[in-house]
Simulated scan of single mutants.
Amino acid sequence: MTDIVVLGAGYAGLAAATNLAGRTRHRGDLHITLVNASYRFTERLRLHSTAAGHSTADFDLREVAAKAGVTFVQGWVTAAGTVRVDDDRTLSFDTLIWALGSTADTSDVPGAAENAYTLDSFADAEALAARLREMRTGAVLVCGTGLTGVETAAEIAERYPDLTVTLRGREEPGATLTPKARSYLMAVLTRLRVRVESGAEISKLLPGTADVVVWTAGTRVSPLAAEAGMTVDERGRIVTRPSLRSVSHPHVYAVGDAAAVRQRYGIMHGTCQSGMPTGVHAAVSIARELAGREPRPFRFGYYHAPISLGRRDAVVQFTRPDDSPRRAFLTGRAAVWYKETVTASPWPTFTRMVEHPGSASWWPRGGRFTR
């Protein structure tokens, strides 16, 4: 019996587990285990909406695991050389898929961990939503002017117009967009009365900085890979070969935010747009290995950057494969429709992979991914 353990059930990990289960469902010599801290699947793309008080769907990982014939283990991973979870269970494996993802990095700024909300999980978003609901007036400070910060600030400002929302960070919001798309984004933030403070270095967060502080300034990955002796980059991500195998531990595949995957244009940055294709590619690679064939190199190119600006507006920047902006972009209702279409819940996709795993096989081979 070959034991395969998938650590993490976010977009990348769940894509890997369900696709591999579908590709190997006729084999009787394979056992797949999926480990995750919660039984609820977290749609991270929608956490800013959850935080603003909008209802989001509740997907149970145990259901899709049972349908796929995968063993689901709920628990925090506490060691990775041999996989241990927080209730002292030890899981043996022949192949490991590392998909532990990333979390908000509050480590470098004193007071950030103690005084700010993050959007790492559904529980985090619900806690922020509960706090915002009890406020009639007050100040909300969103730290980080990246796309998550922009979406969070716009969503809160639209839902709670009596609150004063400030977006603060080093760069101008929409810095990666074309000038016209960025101008549109800034105009919407102005219409929503979001105060923008760009070029601002956040060196410390003291109690009372604002009534509510939301931290979206940067991410970090689990230190467990480095502690297990794997080769990692300066951010702690597992360095991979073109097949997505670890360069130091060939029985480990790294996918999603936790992997440092090099393409012709450089190291990929973590998004759902790139995470699910890495998960599918890991599944394809392992299936090829089990059939006695060598894995193929992973190839990926970006296609777009969809940014919601509340529930009724958005901007979608189309990109080159290296994520640099093209001239084309969408705004307004067309952008809202586009974003809702391409970022619709992947849950049906995960369940479909069990019966039709080949339907996703084009993701890692092609140049672009639009879902």
Rank of each mutant, 00 (worst) to 15 (best):
E126V: 14
A291S: 15
Y303M: 11
A21K: 03
V280F: 12
T331W: 02
M230T: 02
F93Y: 15
L177E: 08
I97E: 06
G270D: 02
G310K: 04
T50A: 14
D313C: 05
A37G: 09
L141E: 10
S285V: 11
G208V: 08
T50N: 06
D313V: 02
S183H: 12
A287K: 04
G275I: 07
D87G: 06
V247N: 00
V194K: 10
A112F: 13
N19Q: 14
A21V: 05
A116N: 07
A139D: 15
G10C: 13
E197G: 02
A79Y: 03
S203A: 12
G199M: 01
K339E: 07
Q263A: 14
V232W: 04
W363S: 03
A21G: 13
A217P: 07
L47G: 07
R25W: 10
F300W: 10
G169S: 04
L91V: 09
K204Q: 14
R293E: 14
T50P: 03
E294I: 04
A334I: 05
E197I: 09
V232C: 07
Y184S: 10
E158F: 07
R241D: 15
G208D: 07
S198K: 05
A9H: 08
T78Q: 12
Q317S: 11
A16W: 12
V64W: 01
S285H: 09
I307G: 08
L185C: 02
L167W: 13
G69T: 07
R195Q: 14
F318H: 09
A335G: 03
V140K: 03
A123Y: 08
I267K: 01
R89F: 08
V85K: 01
I286K: 09
V70N: 09
M230F: 06
G367P: 07
S285I: 13
T145Q: 08
A260S: 15
C143F: 01
L147A: 09
V35P: 00
P297E: 15
P173M: 02
D86R: 05
D120K: 03
E340Y: 04
L290Y: 08
V239E: 12
D313F: 01
E114V: 01
E155V: 00
T351F: 02
V213E: 04
V165W: 08
D108I: 02
N36Y: 11
T166W: 05
E126Y: 14
S198V: 03
T95D: 15
R89V: 06
W76D: 14
T351M: 07
T209G: 06
T351R: 06
S121P: 04
T216W: 00
E197Y: 05
V142W: 00
A210D: 05
T349I: 09
R311S: 15
L163K: 00
F122S: 10
H251A: 12
Y302G: 10
C143E: 13
D86V: 06
F329R: 04
R62F: 06
R326S: 13
T349H: 09
A154Q: 11
W337M: 11
G10P: 14
A254E: 03
S198F: 09
E126L: 13
F300V: 05
P346L: 05
L206V: 14
T152E: 01
C272Y: 03
E155C: 00
A37W: 04
D120H: 12
P321T: 11
D3G: 02
P161W: 05
H31A: 11
G138T: 13
L132P: 00
P357D: 10
T278A: 12
A99I: 03
W347H: 11
C143Y: 01
V261Q: 04
P179M: 04
T24P: 02
R311G: 04
